[in-house]
Every structure is written in structure tokens, then in C-alpha cells.
Amino acid sequence: MNAVTLRVTADRTKCCGAGMCALNAPDVFDQDPDEGLVVLLDPKPPHELHRAVHDAVGLCPSSAISVEEG
């Protein structure tokens, strides 16, 4: 059992609405229908979503999402 928790933050001022997070971690990120910018659904996602969150962070083109382990 992995005890690591992730704290996810999303910065809508940096977001360019490319949708990479919503595509790769749809349980954690969505996009608002007006401007297409990131909406954080789950700031403390369960362990089984950690890999998808890390993928989303690496794929985000505008460094709008970040994670802290703790």
C-alpha cells in the first residue's frame, strides 16, 4: 500500500485550454465549456490516479498544473 498523497493545483491564468489534462486524467481535470480552461475536479486524487496525474503534468503545454507529494 502506497501512502504517498498528491496535492494537485491548477493555475487558470497559465492555462491555454489545450485539454491534455482532461484527456489524460479525466477524473481529476475537466475544462470549463466557455473558455476551455482547466477545472480541478479532485485536488487530492486517490493513489490509482497518481500516474495519470503525473502524465497530465508532463503533457501540459503551459505548465498550468502542478503536484506536491506529501
Binding site: 491555454c16 485550454g17 482532461a22 475544462q31 473558455e35 476551455g36 480552461l37
Partner: peptide, 16 residues
Amino acid sequence: HARLRKMLTGDFIVKR
């Protein structure tokens, strides 16, 4: 760029 792009991003979100 962001001002103009944001007028279109909503039309191309993943869910749409």
C-alpha cells in the same frame, strides 16, 4: 494571443 484564443477554446474542449 490569449485574449483571442480564449474565444475559441471552449469550442474545442475534449468533451465537446
